[in-house]
Protein backbone atom coordinates (compact mmCIF):
# COMPACT_ATOMS: atom_id res chain seq x y z
CA UNK A 1 0.00 0.00 0.00
CA UNK A 2 1.32 3.38 -0.94
CA UNK A 3 0.97 5.91 1.81
CA UNK A 4 -1.14 8.83 0.65
CA UNK A 5 -0.44 12.25 2.03
CA UNK A 6 -3.03 14.94 2.40
CA UNK A 7 -2.94 17.02 -0.73
CA UNK A 8 -1.45 14.15 -2.69
CA UNK A 9 -3.08 14.25 -6.08
CA UNK A 10 -3.07 10.46 -6.23
CA UNK A 11 -5.86 10.32 -3.65
CA UNK A 12 -8.29 11.68 -6.18
CA UNK A 13 -9.00 9.20 -8.97
CA UNK A 14 -8.51 10.77 -12.35
CA UNK A 15 -11.69 10.96 -14.44
CA UNK A 16 -9.90 8.83 -17.01
CA UNK A 17 -9.82 5.83 -14.67
CA UNK A 18 -12.26 3.24 -15.87
CA UNK A 19 -13.15 2.08 -12.38
CA UNK A 20 -16.01 -0.33 -12.21
CA UNK A 21 -16.54 0.26 -8.51
CA UNK A 22 -16.79 4.02 -8.45
CA UNK A 23 -19.37 5.63 -6.15
CA UNK A 24 -21.29 6.73 -9.22
CA UNK A 25 -21.61 3.20 -10.56
CA UNK A 26 -22.71 1.77 -7.21
CA UNK A 27 -25.36 4.49 -6.83
CA UNK A 28 -26.50 4.16 -10.44
CA UNK A 29 -26.80 0.38 -10.50
CA UNK A 30 -28.38 0.36 -7.03
CA UNK A 31 -30.99 2.95 -8.01
CA UNK A 32 -31.92 1.15 -11.23
CA UNK A 33 -32.08 -2.20 -9.44
CA UNK A 34 -34.38 -0.81 -6.74
CA UNK A 35 -36.58 0.96 -9.29
CA UNK A 36 -37.05 -2.36 -11.08
CA UNK A 37 -37.18 -4.69 -8.07
CA UNK A 38 -39.52 -2.71 -5.80
CA UNK A 39 -42.45 -2.51 -8.27
CA UNK A 40 -42.08 -6.22 -8.97
CA UNK A 41 -41.96 -6.94 -5.23
CA UNK A 42 -45.17 -4.99 -4.62
CA UNK A 43 -46.96 -3.79 -7.78
CA UNK A 44 -49.93 -2.43 -5.79
CA UNK A 45 -47.87 0.17 -3.96
CA UNK A 46 -44.42 0.78 -5.48
CA UNK A 47 -45.67 -0.12 -8.94
CA UNK A 48 -48.72 2.09 -8.60
CA UNK A 49 -46.61 5.11 -7.56
CA UNK A 50 -44.29 4.63 -10.49
CA UNK A 51 -47.27 4.42 -12.83
CA UNK A 52 -48.75 7.59 -11.29
CA UNK A 53 -45.82 10.00 -11.78
CA UNK A 54 -44.64 9.96 -15.45
CA UNK A 55 -46.46 13.18 -16.37
CA UNK A 56 -44.85 14.69 -13.27
CA UNK A 57 -41.41 13.74 -14.57
CA UNK A 58 -42.24 15.50 -17.82
CA UNK A 59 -43.27 18.67 -15.97
CA UNK A 60 -40.10 18.60 -13.86
CA UNK A 61 -38.02 18.34 -17.05
CA UNK A 62 -39.94 21.15 -18.75
CA UNK A 63 -39.45 23.48 -15.80
CA UNK A 64 -35.77 22.53 -15.45
CA UNK A 65 -34.79 22.89 -19.13
CA UNK A 66 -36.65 26.17 -19.67
CA UNK A 67 -35.33 27.60 -16.40
CA UNK A 68 -31.71 26.63 -17.02
CA UNK A 69 -31.80 28.07 -20.55
CA UNK A 70 -33.22 31.37 -19.29
CA UNK A 71 -30.90 31.39 -16.27
CA UNK A 72 -27.85 30.97 -18.54
CA UNK A 73 -28.87 33.98 -20.63
CA UNK A 74 -29.68 36.09 -17.56
CA UNK A 75 -26.46 34.87 -15.93
CA UNK A 76 -24.28 35.83 -18.90
CA UNK A 77 -25.81 39.32 -19.05
CA UNK A 78 -25.48 39.73 -15.28
CA UNK A 79 -21.91 38.45 -15.27
CA UNK A 80 -20.94 40.90 -18.02
CA UNK A 81 -22.75 43.64 -16.12
CA UNK A 82 -20.86 42.89 -12.93
CA UNK A 83 -17.49 43.44 -14.66
CA UNK A 84 -18.70 46.22 -16.94
CA UNK A 85 -17.13 49.66 -16.82
CA UNK A 86 -20.53 51.14 -17.62
CA UNK A 87 -21.63 52.37 -14.20
CA UNK A 88 -25.38 52.00 -14.70
CA UNK A 89 -25.17 48.54 -16.25
CA UNK A 90 -22.83 47.47 -13.45
CA UNK A 91 -25.07 48.92 -10.73
CA UNK A 92 -28.20 47.27 -12.13
CA UNK A 93 -26.52 43.88 -12.34
CA UNK A 94 -25.14 44.16 -8.80
CA UNK A 95 -28.51 45.29 -7.45
CA UNK A 96 -30.22 42.34 -9.09
CA UNK A 97 -27.73 39.88 -7.59
CA UNK A 98 -28.00 41.42 -4.12
CA UNK A 99 -31.80 41.37 -4.11
CA UNK A 100 -32.25 37.88 -5.51
CA UNK A 101 -29.57 36.32 -3.32
CA UNK A 102 -31.24 37.78 -0.26
CA UNK A 103 -34.68 36.23 -0.76
CA UNK A 104 -35.32 32.51 -0.29
CA UNK A 105 -36.40 30.73 -3.46
CA UNK A 106 -39.59 29.51 -1.80
CA UNK A 107 -40.56 33.09 -0.93
CA UNK A 108 -39.74 34.19 -4.49
CA UNK A 109 -42.02 31.46 -5.83
CA UNK A 110 -44.88 32.56 -3.59
CA UNK A 111 -44.22 36.18 -4.49
CA UNK A 112 -44.26 35.72 -8.25
CA UNK A 113 -47.24 33.37 -8.20
CA UNK A 114 -49.53 34.70 -5.49
CA UNK A 115 -48.41 38.28 -4.79
CA UNK A 116 -47.82 39.36 -8.40
CA UNK A 117 -50.76 37.12 -9.34
CA UNK A 118 -53.01 39.87 -8.05
CA UNK A 119 -51.64 42.13 -10.82
CA UNK A 120 -50.66 39.83 -13.71
CA UNK A 121 -51.78 36.26 -14.06
CA UNK A 122 -49.38 33.87 -15.67
CA UNK A 123 -49.96 30.11 -15.94
CA UNK A 124 -48.40 28.08 -13.14
CA UNK A 125 -45.55 26.59 -15.18
CA UNK A 126 -44.62 30.02 -16.56
CA UNK A 127 -44.56 31.44 -13.02
CA UNK A 128 -42.38 28.55 -11.93
CA UNK A 129 -39.93 29.08 -14.81
CA UNK A 130 -39.78 32.84 -14.22
CA UNK A 131 -39.08 32.39 -10.51
CA UNK A 132 -36.50 29.63 -10.99
CA UNK A 133 -34.60 31.42 -13.77
CA UNK A 134 -34.78 34.77 -11.98
CA UNK A 135 -33.25 33.18 -8.89
CA UNK A 136 -30.66 31.02 -10.61
CA UNK A 137 -29.77 33.81 -13.07
CA UNK A 138 -28.22 35.69 -10.16
CA UNK A 139 -26.12 32.72 -9.07
CA UNK A 140 -25.10 32.05 -12.67
CA UNK A 141 -24.12 35.70 -12.97
CA UNK A 142 -21.60 35.22 -10.19
CA UNK A 143 -20.30 32.04 -11.80
CA UNK A 144 -19.83 33.83 -15.14
CA UNK A 145 -18.15 36.76 -13.43
CA UNK A 146 -15.68 34.50 -11.65
CA UNK A 147 -15.03 32.55 -14.87
CA UNK A 148 -14.35 35.66 -16.92
CA UNK A 149 -12.13 37.15 -14.24
CA UNK A 150 -10.09 33.95 -14.04
CA UNK A 151 -8.71 34.60 -17.55
CA UNK A 152 -5.37 36.33 -17.44
CA UNK A 153 -5.55 40.03 -18.23
CA UNK A 154 -2.75 39.55 -20.75
CA UNK A 155 -5.25 37.76 -22.98
CA UNK A 156 -7.43 40.85 -23.38
CA UNK A 157 -4.40 43.06 -23.75
CA UNK A 158 -3.11 40.87 -26.54
CA UNK A 159 -6.51 40.75 -28.25
CA UNK A 160 -6.97 44.51 -28.01
CA UNK A 161 -3.45 45.02 -29.37
CA UNK A 162 -4.41 42.83 -32.32
CA UNK A 163 -7.16 45.29 -33.15
CA UNK A 164 -10.13 43.45 -31.63
CA UNK A 165 -12.69 45.71 -30.05
CA UNK A 166 -13.97 45.01 -26.52
CA UNK A 167 -17.01 43.00 -27.60
CA UNK A 168 -14.94 40.89 -30.00
CA UNK A 169 -12.32 40.30 -27.30
CA UNK A 170 -15.02 39.00 -24.98
CA UNK A 171 -16.74 36.95 -27.67
CA UNK A 172 -13.72 35.35 -29.39
CA UNK A 173 -10.93 35.37 -26.79
CA UNK A 174 -12.20 35.50 -23.22
CA UNK A 175 -15.50 33.57 -23.21
CA UNK A 176 -14.23 30.49 -25.10
CA UNK A 177 -11.49 30.13 -22.50
CA UNK A 178 -13.70 31.03 -19.57
CA UNK A 179 -16.10 28.21 -20.46
CA UNK A 180 -13.71 25.65 -19.03
CA UNK A 181 -13.81 27.32 -15.62
CA UNK A 182 -17.49 28.11 -15.85
CA UNK A 183 -18.81 24.70 -16.86
CA UNK A 184 -18.25 22.72 -13.62
CA UNK A 185 -20.04 25.23 -11.35
CA UNK A 186 -22.76 25.73 -14.00
CA UNK A 187 -23.24 21.97 -14.01
CA UNK A 188 -23.63 22.02 -10.24
CA UNK A 189 -26.17 24.81 -10.51
CA UNK A 190 -28.00 22.80 -13.16
CA UNK A 191 -28.36 19.82 -10.84
CA UNK A 192 -29.25 22.06 -7.89
CA UNK A 193 -31.92 23.73 -10.03
CA UNK A 194 -33.40 20.40 -11.02
CA UNK A 195 -33.68 19.42 -7.38
CA UNK A 196 -35.06 22.81 -6.41
CA UNK A 197 -37.87 22.46 -8.96
CA UNK A 198 -39.46 20.22 -6.34
CA UNK A 199 -40.29 23.49 -4.57
CA UNK A 200 -42.66 24.47 -7.39
CA UNK A 201 -45.02 21.74 -6.24
CA UNK A 202 -46.13 24.34 -3.69
CA UNK A 203 -47.67 26.30 -6.60
CA UNK A 204 -49.85 23.29 -7.44
CA UNK A 205 -47.56 22.59 -10.42
CA UNK A 206 -47.97 18.89 -11.06
CA UNK A 207 -44.29 17.92 -10.92
CA UNK A 208 -42.80 14.65 -9.63
CA UNK A 209 -43.17 15.59 -5.97
CA UNK A 210 -46.74 16.93 -6.32
CA UNK A 211 -47.83 13.76 -8.12
CA UNK A 212 -46.22 11.67 -5.40
CA UNK A 213 -47.92 13.67 -2.66
CA UNK A 214 -51.26 13.29 -4.43
CA UNK A 215 -50.74 9.56 -4.60
CA UNK A 216 -49.72 9.29 -0.94
CA UNK A 217 -52.60 11.49 0.19
CA UNK A 218 -55.17 9.07 -1.16
CA UNK A 219 -53.39 5.75 -0.61
CA UNK A 220 -51.55 6.47 2.69
CA UNK A 221 -48.55 4.57 1.27
CA UNK A 222 -46.14 7.23 2.50
CA UNK A 223 -43.07 5.03 2.78
CA UNK A 224 -43.47 3.47 -0.64
CA UNK A 225 -44.32 6.76 -2.34
CA UNK A 226 -41.41 8.81 -1.06
CA UNK A 227 -38.97 5.93 -1.58
CA UNK A 228 -39.89 5.88 -5.27
CA UNK A 229 -39.86 9.70 -5.53
CA UNK A 230 -36.37 9.88 -4.00
CA UNK A 231 -35.09 7.13 -6.31
CA UNK A 232 -36.50 8.84 -9.41
CA UNK A 233 -34.85 12.16 -8.54
CA UNK A 234 -31.60 10.35 -7.75
CA UNK A 235 -31.63 8.50 -11.06
CA UNK A 236 -32.17 11.72 -13.02
CA UNK A 237 -29.41 13.64 -11.21
CA UNK A 238 -27.00 10.71 -11.50
CA UNK A 239 -27.46 10.61 -15.27
CA UNK A 240 -27.11 14.39 -15.45
CA UNK A 241 -23.93 14.48 -13.39
CA UNK A 242 -22.37 11.82 -15.64
CA UNK A 243 -23.28 13.79 -18.77
CA UNK A 244 -21.78 16.94 -17.27
CA UNK A 245 -18.60 15.10 -16.31
CA UNK A 246 -18.25 13.96 -19.93
CA UNK A 247 -18.74 17.51 -21.21
CA UNK A 248 -16.09 18.75 -18.80
CA UNK A 249 -13.65 16.11 -19.98
CA UNK A 250 -14.17 17.07 -23.61
CA UNK A 251 -13.63 20.75 -22.88
CA UNK A 252 -10.41 19.94 -21.06
CA UNK A 253 -9.21 17.72 -23.90
CA UNK A 254 -6.45 20.04 -25.13
CA UNK A 255 -5.22 20.93 -21.68
CA UNK A 256 -4.36 17.33 -20.88
CA UNK A 257 -1.93 16.88 -23.74
Amino acid sequence: MKKIDIGDGAAIPSPDDKQLLSAWWIAFVGTIALLIALPIYDPDTYGAVLAFIPDGIQVTFEVTILSIALALIIGLITGLGRISENRIFNLLASLYVEVVRGIPLLVQLFYIYFALGRIVQVPDIVAAVIAMSFCYGAYMGEVFRAGIMSIDFGQSEAALAQGFNKAQTMRYVILPQAWRTILPPVGNEFIALLKDTSLVSILAVADILRRGREYAASSFDYFETYTIIALVYLLITLILSKLLAHMEQRLNYYEKR
Binding site: F114, G117, Q121, P123
Partner: peptide
Amino acid sequence: AKSYDEVGLAMEDLKVGR
Protein backbone atom coordinates in the same frame (compact mmCIF):
# COMPACT_ATOMS: atom_id res chain seq x y z
CA ALA B 1 -57.86 18.21 -11.03
CA LYS B 2 -55.36 20.56 -9.42
CA SER B 3 -54.28 19.87 -5.87
CA TYR B 4 -53.25 22.66 -3.50
CA ASP B 5 -51.56 22.51 -0.11
CA GLU B 6 -54.24 24.74 1.37
CA VAL B 7 -57.78 25.42 0.25
CA GLY B 8 -57.09 29.17 0.59
CA LEU B 9 -54.46 28.98 -2.15
CA ALA B 10 -56.98 27.28 -4.45
CA MET B 11 -59.52 30.04 -3.70
CA GLU B 12 -56.89 32.69 -4.49
CA ASP B 13 -56.12 31.00 -7.82
CA LEU B 14 -59.85 30.90 -8.56
CA LYS B 15 -60.23 34.59 -7.69
CA VAL B 16 -57.44 35.67 -10.05
CA GLY B 17 -58.82 33.37 -12.75
CA ARG B 18 -56.16 30.72 -13.12
